[in-house]
Amino acid sequence: MPKENQKSQFSPDFPEFTPEVYNELRSLAHAFLGSDRHRHTLQPTALVNEAYLKLAQHPKLGTVPRENLVRLAARVMRNVFVDYVRAANAEKRGGNWQRVSLSAVNESGSIIDIDVLALDEALQELYKLSERKAQLIELRFFGGLTEAEAAASLNISRSEATIQWRHARAWLQKRLRHTGDTQ
């Protein structure tokens, strides 16, 4: 039985945004990504800019700080990305649910497989353990932010961000390695 796609899932981590905003961002992200009809660059900054313009027209949201929007955009990117991989996989497998992996090449040239769902699950767990660290990963992986930008968005110092990033990254790697071992 395939897991519910969680299309309308709205995160309580962003109380300042309504589900409508979240859905708006989602459809924007889908328009950028998704189909091959128009393969335009999906730059999170472009997504944020476009979203920001739409939101600015909204009487209640014109004053939402940009940092919060960046965090939300990264979250949306993550969800859309995970859906995207799931959908691509579902198509390939005729609708049956299978774990998919993306192959990536690391710096030394060896190929590693990323289990996208494992990554997603790991992040969900990290959210429970430390919301800030999960957000840090989200911002850097899915928001495409640099360390300095992510630090600014989370309102922490650059050096603090480095330390936290190193811990989060080590944790994530260990967690993913562990998942691989047990399967």
Binding site: F81, L102, S103, A104, V105, N106, E107, S108, I112, I114, L119, R140, F141, F142, R169, L172, Q173, L176
Partner: peptide, 11 residues
């Protein structure tokens, strides 16, 4: 040799 970097790039 960072697997997380590779994941990040791939995403």
């Amino acid at each position: 040799d960072s697997p997380t970097q590779a994941i990040k790039n791939k995403i």
